[in-house]
């Protein structure tokens, strides 16, 4: 496997995905380079979440190709575990393990999956807790944390696996406006450190600020894409204009 710096980190080509008779993705293509931050926006049901769930093989695709660091995801012999070690994911509903403390949530995967040394993992985990500004919450159970705090634990949990790219699936959609900011700040810091991020989001101001490239999807296709300034200020497609006029 080559890790050519020139090659896109994630390369999506003509992806089709159906749930039964319902075709959710109708030929989507995009390239994401190392260190880039990509925001995918669009109305509900346009296939945004489905698309990023295809990248770490939580959903399979019927047609097309997804290359993650040169590894084909649409392959029946795909080693899903190897793929998922490289691709982190953060969910809308946090999905922390409620029977484990914040620290244990972060430490579990590196110890059990990557078989790393417990002491070292604990050190990393404590550093990550500090990074997401949750010192003192190490021994709290998810049920004892606020939504924003849980989401930051979830981000730390994903980071503990040292992924090459992280997928954020509407991670602030379940939060109130105040706590949204604490989570967005964490993601922004990650982006500034050079982490490759693919975000599905409804936070337009945030997308404008951090994204290198914005994709607008509607009914399973990419309607328009471009760097944030061009995208938000000089949208060409009428569908994009209509969507933006309702949101901005």
């Amino acid at each position: 496997m080559t890790t050519n710096e020139e090659m896109p980190m994630v390369s999506i080509k003509d992806v089709h995905k159906s749930f039964g008779d319902l075709e959710v993705l109708k030929g989507v293509s995009m390239d994401i380079n190392r260190g880039e931050v990509i925001c995918i926006i669009g109305p509900s049901g346009s296939g945004k979440s489905t698309l990023i769930r295809c990248i770490n093989a939580l959903n399979d695709i019927q047609q097309g190709s997804i290359l993650v660091e040169g590894q084909e995801v649409n392959d029946p012999n795909l080693d899903k575990l190897e793929l998922r070690k490289k691709v982190g994911m953060v969910f809308q509903q946090y999905n922390l393990f409620p029977h484990k403390t914040a620290l244990e949530n972060i430490m579990m995967a590196p110890i059990r999956v990557l078989k790393q040394d417990k002491k070292e993992v604990e050190e990393t985990a404590r550093a990550l807790i500090k990074k997401v500004r949750l010192e003192g919450k190490e021994d709290n159970y998810p049920g004892e944390l606020s939504g924003g705090q849980q989401q930051r634990v979830a981000i730390a949990r994903s980071l503990a696996m040292k992924p090459d790219v992280i997928l954020f699936d509407e991670v602030t959609a379940a939060l109130d406006p105040e706590t949204v900011n604490e989570v967005l700040l964490t993601i922004k810091e990650l982006a500034e450190e050079g982490m490759t991020c693919i975000l599905v989001t409804h936070e337009m101001a945030f997308a404008r600020e951090v994204a290198d490239h914005i994709y607008f999807t509607d009914r399973g296709v990419i309607v328009e894409h471009g760097p944030p300034t061009t995208f938000f200020d000089e949208a060409k497609d009428p569908r994009t204009k209509e969507f933006l006029s309702q949101i901005l």
């Binding site: 770490n56 939580l58 899903k80 575990l81 190897e82 998922r84 070690k85 691709v87 982190g88 994911m89 969910f91 509903q93 999905n95 922390l96 393990f97 409620p98 029977h99 579990m108 995967a109 059990r112 999956v113 979830a154 949990r157 994903s158 696996m161």
Partner: peptide
Amino acid sequence: LPSGQWEAAESLAYTRRQTLWLVILPQ
């Protein structure tokens, strides 16, 4: 159990066996 628990474990590269024994059954 909510399917999110399975998905979270899967996205962290747990095997199905690990997911069952470490995440699902304890709950």
